[in-house]
Design a protein around this nucleic acid. Structure first.
Lengths: 228, 228
DNA sequence: CTGGGGTAATTGGTATACCATATACCAGAT
DNA sequence: ATCTGGTATATGGTATACCAATTACCCCAG
């Protein structure tokens, strides 16, 4: 008799409490306008565990992870504080982002598929400079997806993981700064040149363009952005 | 009456158990020839907590951190396994290292102090190619310190943190591969050129040299190193 | 001897209770 | 009123007990 082999996929096991709490906290922190407060926000383990309806143990594990990632700072017998990134730290993160994404661009130029590179056009071509003003909000997303697409084309899992972590912190800045018209225009032009370099399989050029593009953002933040 | 003000320095606060256990485990894992075993080594929470003479709670926190860093893999209701890095993962780590160190070199060329750059000579000049055979073990350390020195000169804390984590995994490979005579000679020559580029404040060149130097290691590992 | 089913042991996850220390508050002396 | 010292409280750290699920083993039917 043939086993009635149902097409079962391993049941999406509910990730552990720790994991779920971690995501919930991360989302909550992301909502928080951290870069706007004067006094650091303090979290309370017991209050949070009560809110979530769980015990302190998995909550603490989630908090410990957030602490290690630098989103939160746990200080013994004092409290748990949402970390306020300094401008210098943001600048460092953008610098590291530049290093990683430019390496991804080099890898992509060397070995990404033609179709993969071609798909980058979808994230850029729709935004001609004249229509840009209308689609600003939309472009902000497309801009971010463009950079993530390059990293994906690099096909280096580790670069993806590292930039994902950075992304959380840099997102707010990137969204804020891209809304300046002239920067957006320049950005689109840069992106087109990057695609061209990738299509020409010019790794050196692609790396340089990506690096300079992101370092431009860094210098802009360094000069003009005020986190207070 | 004048207070008898003793010259007290703040007592060196003993790091928490979690932190100490973490370090102990990390050291233990480092000693383990992970890249040589066939079957993955399994750790037991209860056994370890008994060995260390502590409860499971801080031990679990330390293990969770090691898990997040990828040194260990915790699988629910199965066990905790020391992670065996695949060759592909090692190659990715070296790639990321190249991206980060080359960026650090660029930063160093732009803004490191003259004295800082000069100090790099101490890590290279002592090893002329003719005396190299004798000092091989010593050079292996100096080689690693050279790369860490470049990263330090870049003065980007985040790059330092990230490469420190990578270093743990790459160390074994780097030590193994450097012992091949011809690679060591080439290595020293590369290092000298890198110093020259930094002294000339040529960021583009310094970045390129560092990147190519490290990618050479990557390609060597990709081709010749067998992790079994 | 083999296969299957059920039970016990193992193991990571979670909840709870207790501990140690830093801070805040209060009382009494000056 | 102010300063000193102690005491209560809050908070993160640690220990322990219990839970759920998975694995391993054994016993019995065939």
């Amino acid at each position: 008799m043939t086993k009635t082999s149902l097409n079962i996929e391993p049941i999406e096991i509910g990730f552990g409490l720790k994991h779920r709490i971690y995501n919930a906290l991360k989302a909550a922190i992301m909502e928080t306008p951290i870069y706007a407060q004067g006094a650091d926000l303090r979290l309370d383990e017991r209050a949070l565990s009560a809110q979530f309806g769980i015990s302190r143990t998995p909550l603490r594990e989630a908090l410990a992870q957030l602490d290690q990632e630098g989103l939160v700072r746990i200080v013994p017998r004092r409290g748990i504080y949402i970390v306020r990134k300094t401008k210098a730290e943001i600048v460092e993160m953008i610098t590291v982002w530049a290093a990683l994404e430019s390496m991804a661009a080099r890898l992509a130029a060397e070995s990404a598929s033609k179709e993969g590179i071609a798909s980058l056009h979808d994230l850029v071509d729709a935004y001609t400079t004249d229509k840009l003003a209308i689609k600003m909000g939309e472009y902000s997303d497309a801009n971010i997806r463009f950079h993530q697409a390059i990293i994906a084309l690099g096909n280096c899992r580790l670069i993806g993981e590292l930039t994902d972590k950075l992304f959380f912190h840099v997102r707010a800045i990137r969204q804020r700064t891209i809304f300046e018209q002239d920067r957006a225009k320049r950005s689109i032009q840069d992106h087109k040149e990057i695609i061209a370099a990738l299509e020409a399989r010019d790794g050196d050029l692609a790396e340089r363009l990506v690096r300079e593009h992101t370092l431009k953002l860094r210098d802009h933040v360094k000069q003009f952005v005020n986190l207070e």
